[in-house]
């Protein structure tokens, strides 16, 4: 078995007395789509926040590409290819769609201060703009490249959020509920896009409540409850696990 691209070991994060994440362990294999599910408040978003450096772990560690990155700054993690998206729609609402993605290109469009002023950064900026347009085409947003992001319908905003994240050249992308608020058609389209992302060689970690999407997409699923790992396995194994069914308290996880 290859070395996992991402691993969390005995990860804990408390807020005051509340143990939002408690002794959590899992490993994500490269080029897989790895699901992270669990009831509301299980600690999924907190886990993402700790992995991506928004919160420091209370204890335990996060290992990325064999390197302990616990407590590393978000922007540094992004530089080395660990990118996350947000549960709520998070965009530069005041920017045009294309400028949102151009900001996403921050990593690949680095240039010195003087070349910025003198315009000698043209080469990197042209490349960034091309990449941004390519990503908009990938998500079917080309037509509205110059619209303000705030004017987009919800589904397009979620897609744009992923485009911004992909512009940052992730090796692994953490998607926090990418399908919320989407109708079944949009969800099906986005699922196909997530598969395409993986085909680009990017590892995907996915938090999602839409069980049909999770079961359809993921190679491995980690189920969390009360901050800890409850079960881990293939979609079929997880779907039929009585502990999982109990955690969801009768919520038919394979209904939909």
């Amino acid at each position: 078995m290859s070395q996992p691209i991402l691993e969390v070991c005995d990860l804990c994060r408390s807020f005051g007395g509340l143990k939002a994440v408690h002794n959590l362990n899992f490993a994500v294999e490269p080029q897989t789509i790895h699901g992270l599910i669990g009831p509301n408040g299980a600690g999924k978003t907190t886990t993402f926040n700790v992995i991506s450096g928004f919160y420091a772990p209370s204890s335990g560690k996060v290992v990325y590409q064999g390197r302990d990155v616990s407590g590393m700054k978000t922007s540094k993690l992004a530089e080395i290819g660990l990118i996350r998206t947000f549960q709520g729609t998070t965009l530069f609402q005041e920017f045009s769609v294309i400028d949102n993605v151009r900001i996403g290109c921050h990593n690949s469009a680095r240039s010195g201060f003087f070349s910025r002023i003198t315009g000698m950064d043209r080469a990197v900026e042209t490349a960034a703009l091309d990449k941004a347009h390519e990503l908009l085409a990938f998500f079917g947003l080309s037509e509205i490249a110059n619209e303000p992001a705030a004017s987009l319908p919800h589904g397009h905003q979620r897609a744009l959020g992923m485009a911004v994240a992909l512009a940052a050249d992730p090796k692994i992308i953490l998607l926090d509920e990418p399908f919320t608020g989407m109708n079944p058609d949009e969800t099906a389209r986005m699922m196909e896009l997530v598969r395409d992302v993986r085909r680009r060689g990017i590892t995907v970690m996915l938090v999602e409540h839409d069980m049909k999407a999770v079961m359809g997409l993921c190679d491995v699923i980690t189920v969390m409850n009360f901050g800890s790992r409850l079960v881990e396995g293939t979609p079929d194994a997880v779907r039929n696990d009585p502990k999982v069914i109990e955690a969801y308290l009768g919520r038919a996880i394979d209904a939909a």
Binding site: K73, K76, A78, I103, R116, V164
Partner: peptide, 24 residues
């Protein structure tokens, strides 16, 4: 330049800017 765009980005959504590698 991109520097100005990045300043604006930090103003409106510093978390998102951080998440794509901007050292705010």
């Amino acid at each position: 330049s991109r520097i100005g765009l990045t300043f604006h980005a930090i103003h409106w959504q510093d978390k998102l800017a951080e998440s794509v590698g901007v050292g705010t």
